[in-house]
Design a protein around this nucleic acid. Structure first.
Lengths: 255, 255
DNA sequence: ACCAATTTGTCCGTATGTATG
DNA sequence: TCATACATACGGACAAATTGG
């Protein structure tokens, strides 16, 4: 007999519950910050069992559309960038992307960020970068701190770019690539001073609102990362190791 | 009395169950494709009630680390890019990002993609783009189809770039920005032919493996989008409307 | 193609700890 | 302080679907 109809596959009730609540939030009928009804109320509305409602809620909880406050009550909320970014990082790790892929993407996003930042940076943001620079100068002999300051430096620039889409796009890559600077610097005497010079030049370009110079120096800076990476005996075409997993949060706590 | 200890906040049992399973997958002790134990087995191992186990599983199900096959059994799996991308798109929508933010990010990512594609594109990929071009030429008077072909065109280039990180980075933005071409073309007689010319030039540059030309034409092409957008009477600084939500999947099915 | 065992989906009732007013 | 509401967690039960002989 010919196949006349495609298979009907009814989703489980808990999935339907989750979809229904999700739709309410996405459509704006439930505003972020607004309380989701109590479980008892949802049981009433959906006409399903308590357990089913709870499974549906758990389904949404992970996505960030729903959050529990201290009292365990459920509220609709906006997914946080940090959480999204760490999920993406994890996915990239699991897919075993290579450092080359991170490198190329970082190049595009960091250069774009700093060029925008040169146009839009505010005095307080410039000051924050100057602070970072000072702390970097004081930590030239500590690769671990240096690596953290480097991550912060680029995050500050991304913030100054005033573009949340760009900011979110660069975050996952940043989480994976900047921790490597620690390893690079541990075997490279000239590395830290080169980093400091690049950061100083970038700060100067931003202060001068010089889009062009900022872009050029960022490009050099990212190329420098690659050279250091290769000089440290590493291959760009190897997948990012799971070692860097501990920079990625799991369920609210580090692994 | 002085505060000697900070507050201990135990996570709910279902959260601990989810974290435990997640750790097994992230650490590689459970390989993608491998079955997660049956609920009964997990009840045994964790020493909690089955409802609790089920809530923990639901928590993971949404993240893409766990998937149900047709038989409803649970397998570990790699998070799919498409699912991640649509989640990010949704988050961007909820945060009410502006078209300007999308525009700037698209510019950076599409130019970077096409430059890499010019170096790496394979003959079959080039052929796929040629096919797309032919279909575009045949659909110049249908804005809806044109918009879909435009999205496909850029996705093909991203694929040819051979960089999964870049591919994932551009996808969420693409999901939000390309549907607008439909609206733009509906009131713009010269729009479709300009799109066709840009796509043709890009194809030629890729065929010639001309990195430089490819980048330049892509830049013009993206700028063209902005001009069309503004000519259609729209403001770059308005948030992306929820209208585009229906390009974003919810729970496996469209809204 | 049939049957038995397994597994998931769903429901019911109850107990407990905690936050809120 | 106390009472109430609510989320968490447990135990047991049954139907439906799937698996594997």
């Amino acid at each position: 007999m010919a196949e006349r109809f495609e298979r009907i596959q009814a989703s489980p009730a808990y999935q339907l519950v989750a979809d229904a609540i999700e739709r309410e939030i996405l459509s704006g009928r439930i505003q972020p910050g607004e309380r989701i009804g109590t479980e008892a109320a949802l049981v009433e509305q959906f006409g399903v069992n308590r357990s089913t409602v709870r499974e549906g809620i758990r389904l949404l909880e992970q996505s960030g559309l729903i959050r529990r406050d201290s009292s365990r009550r459920l509220y609709a909320s906006l997914p946080r960038y940090a959480k999204l970014a760490s999920r993406i990082s994890r996915a990239l790790l699991l897919h075993e992307v290579t450092f080359r892929e991170l490198y190329e993407t970082t190049m595009a996003l960091e250069v774009a960020s700093v060029r925008l930042a040169a146009e839009r940076i505010t005095p307080p943001q410039l000051q924050a970068i100057a602070d970072n620079l000072a702390r970097t100068e004081a930590a030239l002999d500590d690769p671990r701190i240096l690596s953290e300051l480097d991550t912060e430096f680029h995050a500050l620039i991304a913030e100054a770019a005033g573009n949340r889409v760009l900011q979110l796009a660069r975050e996952p890559t940043s989480l994976l690539i900047y921790p490597t600077t620690q390893v690079i610097f541990e075997g490279s005497p000239r590395g830290p001073s080169r980093l400091l010079e690049a950061h100083s030049r970038l700060h100067a370009a931003l202060a001068a609102r010089d889009r062009q110079a900022a872009g050029v120096w960022m490009e050099r800076h990212v190329v420098d990362w690659r050279k250091g990476f290769e000089r440290a005996g590493k291959d760009l075409d190897t997948p990012v190791e799971r070692v860097y997993m501990d920079h990625v949060m799991v369920g609210g706590s580090r692994l």
